[in-house]
């Protein structure tokens, strides 16, 4: 039995095509400006002098990120009306009939997973395509990725398969929330922080 559903993301494989982001919007009928899965373009660096030679030190990779259905969902701890709750299989839900729309959880989540949704006039977020998953199918984002950069499953199984990396730049310290997330880093990620890499596509995410 699944005790904690989780996503896997392979930053080395991701091309930044955003098929996952669009598949999520399409499946959940999200209007303009509401994104449950976002693809962040992380860029930095430039040129570096090595001896007498200038070599490129450009950082460029993508991070596809939705809600991480954290083991310690700080969003739910912050919510005054208990509108955010965690199912037995680890999926974290927002009850849009309870949410008062104070948007406090938006500030509390370090992954900015909670997004205001005009249709319900409340916050909203990735629900792991729970109905598809319950029916034995993959979440829409996982199914849509042409490079198989996304996977899903029980956190323990994903760790066995891919290792237990939960952090690459510029993600928050995983100790904050215990994200149910397994990552494979892009080769640029190791030096991204020291080269001052940042998200470059704020308008999009």
């Amino acid at each position: 039995m699944v005790t904690q559903y989780a996503f896997f993301f392979d930053a080395a494989a991701c091309s930044g095509c955003k098929a996952c982001q669009v598949a999520c919007k399409d499946r959940n009928d999200l209007g303009p400006g509401t994104l449950w899965r976002r693809v962040y373009e992380v860029t930095g660096g430039g040129w570096e002098k090595k001896g007498q030679v200038w070599v490129p030190s450009v950082i460029a990779y993508n991070v596809s990120m939705a809600c991480n259905h954290c083991e310690n969902p700080v969003c739910g701890a912050a919510c005054p009306v208990k509108a955010i709750w965690k199912r037995e299989d680890g999926i974290v839900f927002v009850d849009t009939d309870l949410c008062i729309g104070c948007r406090y959880c938006e500030w509390a989540c370090p992954y900015t997973a909670l997004r205001f949704h005009a249709a319900t006039n409340t916050v909203s977020k990735c629900d792991f395509c729970y109905d598809a998953v319950d029916a034995g199918k993959p979440p829409a984002c996982v199914a849509a990725c042409p490079r198989r950069a996304l996977d899903f499953g029980d956190l323990a199984d994903l760790r066995k398969k891919y290792g237990d990396l939960r952090h690459i730049h510029p993600l928050p310290d995983p100790e904050q929330t215990g994200p149910a997330l397994v990552l494979r880093p892009h080769r640029d990620a190791a030096r991204a922080a020291e080269r001052g890499a940042e998200v470059a596509n704020w308008e999009e995410v």
């Binding site: 005054p80 309870l98 008062i100 729309g101 104070c102 006039n121 409340t122």
Partner: peptide, 10 residues
């Protein structure tokens, strides 16, 4: 608040 009338549960 976007749903002020639900605030009774606050």
């Amino acid at each position: 608040l976007h749903h002020p009338f639900r605030a009774v549960r606050v």
